[in-house]
Design a protein around this nucleic acid. Structure first.
Length: 480
RNA sequence: CGGGGCGUAGCUCAGCUUGGCAGAGCGCUCGGUUUGGGUCCGAGAGGUCGUCGGUUCAAAUCCGGCCGCCCCGACCA
């Protein structure tokens, strides 16, 4: 195996790097229908860890999981004007069932607000029925024209939460609460320093009064919307007649929210942390946190090395660490090192005859390549040593990503500087433009308002584009 | 849907200009060898050359239709 084709360096062709890494790291493959994706076990394991981290957070806020049909009557979509207008171009529609032409076409859900609206209008009669807090883990279908593994496929996996409330205040609070959940998850589980903020009117979800988002910067400086939380106001309640009697026996419309995070987030992890050697998984979400590579020349060494390997594996498992032992025959250790680096396993333990003799192991960290990242440590207390290292790696990834984002985010005051800024990253600007201005900026620079950050500096300034007085700052960037 | 590129082994591709036995590297299987940063040797398996038609004694190769995929644009979690 003299030379196996290497990854295209990220700096050379980020897109090519991404496509190669997704497939070579065994996360996913293309499905037979254009734009569809097969998620492979390693990729799905990552998704399961994402699900676990989110699900427990949802439940901690009182949310329960449920399942709803993937088939939605076409007429449901049409009940909310903005909603149908937004989704009509990308619907998959079933017109034949069981060999018979259907009386009414059935839509494969692109999202479930309408199905939820239907159910909630039946379930909600009284203020005592509120709040109603449900979530579902499912897949949805949107007929996208241009697709890319994890980032945009015809079908994708996600969770969609749907809540109904008695008051506008509670609704608002829940919208914000779920944004905070996503932010906490992204920062503390995925080590991705997202910017929580408010979407502009143009980027708002079809049918929402307000869309909140977490925006992340990828390794090429482009933005990725990584999770969203929508305040739907009374829009869907009015369209689906979700009404309840309040304490004064007066009929009121409910206030609803919806919020989602998809397998797109896997793309965010890949593009935030990966390097020229492949993936780097954040330890808290990594399917395998440590890989052990045993090294031996002959049978005698094999026996003692594997004995030590098993013992160490058990100790690490007992310490709550997710461990993979690579006992594949006929593959050299060097090959395995590269292989697991490509797959992004955060830490690697090498055990050879010399280690058995000296009661040590070689411990390498994925985020620091080469010799610098490798150290020889005692087998004594290895569980704790590794656990500590994983915490350190998690923090280092967050620090590095934060620095990268900050280094590539620029405060600008004029259009020329703006264009320079968005060619490599984000521009942070005072903004007082309208939709037409935003459209023009997009046409001229490909950059859009990613969000108005929740954390506003206060005060006021001058809009870089219109020259008008502005009271809020916006983050602009080119987006996936 | 507009512009460009491409369909040959599981993957990456050569062969096509000038028609004449279906190829290489990687991967896979078997045997041996090796193993502390992408081991080496040997033997194998594997293809209706996207598809339909045309030209020809003869088509992966020339001509036409269709289908599909990739990249760039418009649309998007």
């Amino acid at each position: 195996m003299a030379k196996q084709d290497k990854l295209t360096p990220r700096s050379e062709d980020f897109n090519d790097w991404y496509n190669a890494v997704v497939q070579k790291a065994d996360l996913a493959d293309y499905g037979p229908v254009r734009g569809t994706m097969i998620v492979k076990p390693y990729g799905w394991a990552l998704w399961e860890n994402i699900q676990g981290a989110l699900d427990s957070r949802f439940k901690a806020t009182g949310v329960q999981n449920a399942g709803f049909p993937m088939f939605i009557p076409m007429s449901f979509l049409q009940k909310e004007a903005a909603h149908v207008e937004g989704f009509a171009p990308e619907l998959a529609v079933v017109t034949i069932g069981g060999g018979q032409e259907l009386a009414e076409p059935i839509v494969v859900r692109p999202t479930s607000e309408t199905m939820i609206g239907h159910a909630y209008s039946n379930w909600i009669q009284s203020y005592r029925d509120l709040p109603l807090l449900l979530n579902m883990w499912n897949s949805v279908v949107r007929w996208e024209l241009r697709t890319k593994l994890f980032l945009r496929t015809l079908e994708f996996y996600w969770q969609e939460g749907h809540t109904a409330h008695a008051t506008a205040e509670e609704c608002d609070e829940r919208t914000r609460m779920m944004l905070d959940v996503y932010t906490d998850f992204a920062v503390n589980e995925a080590a991705i320093p997202v910017i929580p903020g408010v979407k502009s009117e143009m980027e708002r979800f079809a049918g929402a009064n307000q869309t909140l988002t977490i925006e992340a910067m990828m390794g090429d400086g482009k933005a990725l919307q990584s999770g969203t939380s929508h305040n739907l106001g009374e829009n869907f309640a009015k369209a689906f007649d979700i009404q309840y009697l309040d304490k004064n026996n007066e009929l009121q419309y409910a206030w609803t929210t919806s919020w989602g995070l998809s397998t797109r987030f896997i793309g965010a992890i890949i593009m935030t942390h990966g390097d020229d050697n492949g993936l780097i998984m954040p330890p808290r979400l990594a399917p395998y946190q440590v890989v052990i590579v045993p090294i031996y020349k002959n049978e005698e060494e094999q026996v003692s090395v594997l004995e030590a390997t098993n013992r160490i594996q058990q100790e690490l498992v007992a310490a709550g660490i997710r461990v993979k032992v690579d006992d594949r025959e006929n593959l050299s250790p060097g090959f395995k090192f590269n292989d697991w680096e490509l797959r992004g396993v955060p830490a690697r333990i090498e055990i050879g005859p010399r280690d058995v003799e000296k009661n040590s192991v070689a411990l390498a960290r994925r985020d620091v390549p080469g010799r610098e990242g490798k150290q020889f440590v005692s087998q004594e207390g290895l569980g704790q040593t590794v656990a500590d290292l994983l915490v350190e790696i998690q923090q280092a990834l967050l620090d590095r990503a934060t620095k990268f984002r900050d280094d590539n985010t620029h405060d600008v005051e004029n259009y020329d500087d703006f264009k320079t800024a968005v060619s490599t990253g984000f521009a942070r600007v005072w903004w007082a433009g309208d939709n037409a201005d935003e459209t023009r900026v997009k046409e001229e620079t490909k950059a859009t308002i990613r969000c108005f950050p929740i954390a506003q500096p206060g005060g006021s300034g001058t809009c870089f584009y219109t020259g008008k007085p502005a009271d809020k700052i916006a983050i602009f960037g080119r987006a996936y």
